[in-house]
C-alpha cells in the first residue's frame, strides 16, 4: 500500500509542478525565446480533411477581423 501512496504523491507532485510551470510559461511572455518563431513554417493550422473543391473562392472569402 505504501507503494500506491508514494506513487500517488509523486504523481500529484509532478502534475502540480507541470501545471504551475505551464501557467507560469503562459503568463510570462517575456521569457519566450525568439527561436520559437522558427516553428512558424511548421504550423499550418488544422487540416480540413474533406477534399476541397478547386478555384471557387473569392478573395473576400478570407475572414475579416
Amino acid at each position: 500500500m505504501e507503494v500506491f501512496a508514494v506513487t500517488l504523491f509523486v504523481s500529484l507532485l509532478l502534475g502540480g509542478l507541470f501545471a504551475a510551470l505551464f501557467f507560469a510559461e503562459r503568463s510570462q511572455t517575456g521569457r519566450r525565446s525568439l527561436e520559437q518563431q522558427a516553428l512558424l513554417p511548421l504550423d499550418d493550422g488544422a487540416p480540413i480533411l474533406k477534399p476541397a473543391p478547386t478555384e471557387l473562392s473569392a478573395p473576400d472569402s478570407t475572414p475579416s477581423r
Binding site: 499550418d44 493550422g45 488544422a46 477534399p51 476541397a52 473543391p53 478547386t54 473562392s57 475572414p63 477581423r65
Partner: peptide, 18 residues
C-alpha cells in the same frame, strides 16, 4: 492528379493584435 487548393482552419487575429 487534380488541381487542389489547400484549406486550413486558422485562428483569426483580433484587431487589437494588429
Amino acid at each position: 492528379g487534380k488541381a487542389v487548393n489547400e484549406k486550413r482552419e486558422v485562428v483569426l487575429l483580433q484587431r487589437g493584435q494588429k
